[in-house]
Design a binder for these strands. Structure first.
Lengths: 221, 221
DNA sequence: GTCTATAGAACGATAGAC
DNA sequence: GTCTATCGTTCTATAGAC
């Protein structure tokens, strides 16, 4: 006997890959079910059959992609905490945990294309309400975990400054991730994100520099 | 006699204000002409009469808003260059020129609302092709001017590193500007961007810290 | 210059045959 | 589980009266 549902799984998978590809380029509103099924080379009706609605499809894409990244970040924080114990995790290490899984998991994909990484950026700036809701829930745990560790690593900084810096950091990452075109315009590089490690290395340095300077700002409140 | 076209100008203006308000919340695709005319309390057909098409309306909104911000930045750079001459402009000063006009011009609006500032962020992450084209043209001059000055201020840094840092900086600004909801989530602040000056002060510190750390990274290429 | 009415196209979703 | 055919909605844009 053959396996039970080979074709269904394949169709489902093809739809998911097509959806994230188109969403990452155009956003939720401009991603039409018609274009997704055309790109996936499946029937128009199959999206509703397998997922229920366009919104349910989008939700499935987000959850499938963001879950692993955050699980890895949480695991890395816990490992780093054990390793450093009882000292706090060093700032560059902490920032790297924030930055690297985002870039590396994205490039584990076959063809090393930038679809996943662009999808994350697109997701963050997506105006549709339900996407924002899913986003908020997906990143709530890692945000509060990161704040805890930042408070340990930089005990003299105010919580308000740390939160503001974390906000800046997420902004930097999202911008750096999502906007490949602007990346090329500004940096004038031929490649896009090919040398991930070099880029991550500099991004970590940039964020660490930012944190240190803000939290060492002369008090003036 | 009364002025010649008081009502036409008023309608045009109402449409522009309504368009940027709705665009800043939802992006180009989700902004419908119907909703714009409803919000502006003008007739549905008036958008096509005054602007030609939805796309032309969007173009008018962008050019009306971005022009003054970039003109002010260019003027500030030239003034700072004269003042510092023959020394280069100090890094914090240069970064402040990049950051502050964006926030301040946005808050000159009546009611101090965040529409303009959100519009800029939304514009930067807008997937529609023609918006990206307008964006690129609008910011090409200020980008190259800023690169010139950065090269003078940080003469030991490689051009590649400076471009990458500038890219990070724009990313940080865009993220910090555009995403009021995430700002509230992460920072847990009740206000949004009320205390602009405090926010700008910290954003400048963050970016300066980032630049300095990346450009002083031990060489390893 | 402003209105109503509507053309014409594209969309999400579903019914029903296979 | 997959297909075709289509319904009902919503959109941009325009024609034509005022």
């Amino acid at each position: 006997m053959a396996t039970t549902t080979p074709k269904a799984d394949k169709t489902r998978h093809r739809i998911l890959r097509a959806a994230e590809k188109i969403f990452s380029k155009k956003g939720f509103r401009a991603m039409t079910v018609r274009e997704v099924t055309r790109e996936a080379r499946v029937n128009l009706a199959s999206v509703n059959y397998h997922f229920g609605s366009k919104q349910d499809l989008m939700q499935a894409v987000i959850e499938e992609r963001f879950g692993p990244i955050n699980r890895q970040r949480i695991a890395l924080i816990e490992a780093a905490r054990r390793e450093a114990h009882p000292a706090p995790i060093a700032l560059p290490k902490l920032i790297e945990i924030m930055v690297r899984p985002l870039f590396e998991l994205a490039f584990q994909e076959p063809g090393n294309d930038t679809t996943v990484i662009r999808m994350i950026g697109r997701c963050m700036s997506e105006p549709t309400d339900f996407v924002q809701d899913v986003n908020e829930k997906t990143f709530a745990e890692i945000t509060s975990l990161m704040m805890e560790e930042l408070a340990r690593t930089l005990p003299d900084a105010s919580e308000a400054d740390l939160r503001l810096c974390l906000f800046f950091t997420i902004s930097t990452m999202i911008g750096a991730i999502g906007d490949e075109d602007r990346f090329r315009d500004v940096t004038r590089r031929k490649q896009t994100f090919e040398d991930t490690s070099e880029m991550v290395h500099r991004l970590v340095a940039y964020v660490v520099g930012g944190f240190l300077r803000v939290t060492h700002l002369p008090k003036q409140d």
